[in-house]
Simulated scan of single mutants.
Amino acid sequence: MPFMGQDWRGPGEKWIKTPLTNGWERTKLRPIQISSEAIPIKSSTSFDDDLPISNDEGRGTSSDELSDEEPWIPHCFVKSKSKEFIGCTSMSEAFHRLDLARAVSDIRRFSYVCKVVSILVEEKLRNLSATARKSLLSIITAIVVRASEEDLDISTARRLLNFFSEGLEGHVYGSPLLTAKHQLRVGSLLDAVSSVHPRPIEEIDNTGVTFLDLPRELISLVLSRLSDSKSLIEISKSHQVFEGIVDNEMTMWRRLVSFHFSPLQIEVARREKDLMTWRDTFFHLRKMHVLREVYADVIHICCHCKALFWNTLGHPCIRPSSPSVRVTPQQFVDMLLLL
Rank of each mutant, 00 (worst) to 15 (best):
E57R: 14
S35F: 05
G60D: 13
D50P: 02
D49V: 05
F77I: 06
S36W: 10
E70K: 10
Q33A: 11
S35Q: 11
G60Q: 04
E84W: 11
E37S: 11
H75P: 04
P40D: 08
S80Y: 07
E69Q: 08
E65V: 12
M91D: 00
S43N: 09
T45L: 02
S80F: 02
D64N: 12
L51E: 07
S82K: 13
S54V: 01
S43R: 01
E70G: 08
D49L: 13
F85I: 05
S62N: 07
K79Q: 14
R97Q: 08
K42F: 11
A94T: 09
I32H: 13
N55Y: 09
L51K: 02
S36N: 01
T89Q: 15
D64M: 12
S63R: 15
A38Q: 08
V78H: 01
L51D: 01
D64C: 05
D68M: 03
R97K: 10
P74A: 12
K81R: 10
G60R: 06
L98D: 01
I53W: 10
S90A: 11
G58Y: 06
I73S: 04
M91T: 13
F77A: 09
F77P: 07
E70Q: 12
E69N: 11
S35K: 01
E84H: 08
M91W: 09
E57F: 06
S62E: 04
F77D: 06
S92M: 04
W72N: 15
D56T: 14
K79M: 13
F85L: 01
H75S: 14
D64L: 14
E65S: 06
A94V: 07
M91G: 02
C76I: 05
S36Y: 05
A94N: 02
W72R: 09
S36T: 08
D64I: 13
R59A: 11
E84V: 02
S54K: 05
R97G: 00
E57I: 09
K81W: 07
S67H: 06
T89F: 03
I86D: 06
G58R: 10
A94W: 06
S36F: 04
C88P: 00
S35W: 00
E37D: 12
N55C: 02
P74Q: 09
D64F: 14
I34W: 03
K81P: 04
V78L: 14
G87N: 08
